[in-house]
Simulated scan of single mutants.
Amino acid sequence: MRVLVRPHQIPVRLATGLFMLNAGLSKASADEETAAALHGMASGAYPFLKNMEPMTFAKLLSKSEIALGVALLLPVVPSVVAGAALTAFAGGLTGLYLRTPGLRQEGSLRPTPEGMDIAKDTWLVGIGASLLCEELGRRD
């Protein structure tokens, strides 16, 4: 029988899942100003988002973070699925960091003080990729 979550994966899934759930719940009641700021930053990096209403974007972002957090927390969600979802989401955050002017030092990947909050989220890519690679590399 294949185990969906192995014991050593529980701490990282718990910590990351709670972090993502909190991020999503925090955005669930975003006001117009917060929604506009979130949407402005995202649509600057990803132009296809420009036509979306800021409140719609904030609600979608909130629901995505909540769903991802819950997926990481629930042991019935296979680690390969949770890891793939986390890697994709975190890849988007990393793209936002790389594409937004002023978040990185000129000619460097090192963050500016303004970029630190987003740059630190690159650890999510590592966690997601680790879960994904471990599960894809398994030989049952």
Rank of each mutant, 00 (worst) to 15 (best):
N22F: 11
Y97G: 05
G137D: 03
T16I: 03
L14Q: 11
L49M: 15
S29N: 09
L96A: 12
S79M: 03
L131M: 02
L103I: 02
L86V: 09
A15F: 12
H8Y: 08
K27P: 04
L131K: 04
Y97F: 08
A119C: 11
V5Y: 01
S26E: 15
P54N: 06
S62W: 01
I118M: 09
A82W: 05
A15E: 11
I10L: 05
E114L: 14
E134S: 12
K59I: 13
S79L: 00
R139V: 04
A119L: 03
R104N: 01
K120L: 09
V77I: 07
G40F: 11
L132N: 03
A58G: 07
Y46F: 15
V125H: 08
P47S: 06
E32W: 06
N51I: 12
C133Q: 05
G24D: 09
V81K: 00
A85H: 07
L124N: 03
K63S: 15
G128R: 05
H39K: 03
C133G: 13
L14E: 13
V125P: 13
W123G: 01
S64Y: 14
S43I: 02
C133V: 14
P78R: 07
G137K: 01
T94R: 11
G17K: 06
A58W: 04
E32K: 14
T122C: 06
T34A: 02
L4N: 08
A129K: 08
A15S: 14
P78V: 00
S130N: 12
L25E: 14
A129Y: 12
M52K: 08
A30H: 10
C133D: 05
S108Q: 04
